[in-house]
């Protein structure tokens, strides 16, 4: 039974292992697009092949032992090597060698991943975790945004991570390993993207009801695009001239949006309202809403404003009852903030 079962099962393990080795090309930690993730993936492949070899050897031994044990007529027939040699070589010498290799490579890789670059950081970004969204600040450049983190491609970027409430964790698998956002303690994480692209990441430390959909995007752009983006964002918004949009702005104040959401040049959030929401200064130019969960378009935004809990139960933004006209004006006003 076991012989048959063992034979039947063992190739499945192999196939699965090889499948694991093979199907790692479409995104994720094994499809690295930055030096941190790349070093880590190299380290993983070393451990993977060593681990696979160990697993095959141990399973082979088990299978052989079972076949032999079943054939043994008289107890105490001797295996090819003594127990002592078996334990010493298999249980001690070989593991020590493998572990030494793994530990050494781990330390080396770890050092290279966290080592800050020689030069000053091209950009320093503060990422502050909130339940359940990411506040993003460029302190030297005087830019504030949320959930989408543009960075220049090909240069190391320093992220200064902290939290406004509970513990969150910053993770963009294609760029680097994760780091926690602790309240009261600032962590530093260096990321660098090799290619211009949009990289998905989400909160990796359980932070409450909406932990699952606390997403973010890292948008790697060329230096020129990035500089342009910064320059655009440094402009404060101004009150709209268009009558319809002005009506939208009035709804923004009357419906209470302004309590939590600031728009630079128009208003700042009221600290007394408790936890602030994402800054909306250049909201119209964002790709996504609801912490990178949905595309930023008219329909999604309107639905989100009316009842955020439909999409994301537990977020702190309350549902808002609005006349269709008011909603229309509000959405148009928000989308106009480019």
């Amino acid at each position: 039974m076991v012989q048959v079962g063992g034979k039947r099962y063992f190739p499945i393990v192999l196939v699965l292992l090889l499948a694991l080795a093979g199907c790692s090309t479409d995104g994720g930690a094994l499809d690295p697009r930055g030096p941190g993730a790349a070093d880590t993936a190299t380290h993983w492949w070393l451990m993977f092949w060593l681990g696979l070899a160990v697993y095959i050897v141990v399973m082979g031994l088990l299978l052989y032992a079972i076949m032999r044990g079943r054939r043994n007529a008289d107890p105490g027939s001797n295996p090819p090597i003594s127990d002592r040699a078996f334990f010493t070589v298999g249980g001690l010498v070989i593991p020590i060698l493998i572990l030494a290799l793994v530990l050494g490579d781990s330390i080396r890789t770890g050092q290279s991943v966290i080592e800050p670059p020689e030069d000053e950081a091209a950009v320093t970004i503060e990422v502050i975790g909130h339940m359940f969204w990411w506040e993003v600040r460029y302190p030297d450049l005087d830019v504030v945004t949320a959930n989408e983190i543009p960075i220049p491609v090909g240069v190391p970027v320093e992220l200064r991570l902290s939290s406004a409430d509970v513990i969150h964790s910053f993770w963009v698998p294609e760029l680097a390993g994760k780091r926690d956002l602790n309240p009261g303690k600032e962590n530093v994480l260096w990321i660098e993207a090799d290619e211009e692209d949009i990289y998905w990441g989400q909160c990796a430390e359980f932070c409450g009801v909406q932990h699952a959909l606390m997403g973010k995007l890292v948008i790697a752009q060329s230096e020129d695009e990035f500089d342009q983006w910064i320059a655009d964002r440094q402009e404060p918004a101004s009150e709209p001239d268009d009558e319809f949009l002005r009506a939208g702005m009035d709804v923004y104040f009357d419906a209470g949006c302004a309590m939590c959401h600031g728009i630079d040049g128009i208003t700042e959030p009221d600290p007394a309202a408790g936890a602030p929401g994402p800054d909306l200064t250049h909201f119209g130019s964002r790709l996504t809403i609801a912490s990178a969960i949905e595309d930023n378009n008219y329909g999604n935004l309107a639905a989100w404003i009316v009842d955020p809990h439909q999409l994301k139960p537990g977020v702190r933004m309350p549902p808002t009852e609005l006349d269709p006209d008011d909603l229309d004006a509000l959405v148009e006003f928000l989308l106009s903030l480019e």
């Binding site: 393990v13 930690a29 993730a37 070093d39 880590t40 380290h43 993983w44 451990m47 993977f48 681990g51 160990v54 697993y55 141990v58 399973m59 572990l99 793994v102 530990l103 490579d105 781990s106 890789t109 770890g110 991943v113 964790s169 698998p173 680097a176 390993g177 994760k178 780091r179 990796a204 430390e205 359980f206």
Partner: peptide, 21 residues
């Protein structure tokens, strides 16, 4: 044994930064 082998892997801090949680 398979869980043990992945256990050695996650014992490596730099690898764990990717797969932790």
């Amino acid at each position: 044994v398979l869980g043990g082998i992945t256990g050695v892997m996650v014992a490596s801090p730099v690898f764990d930064w990717q797969v932790h949680d």
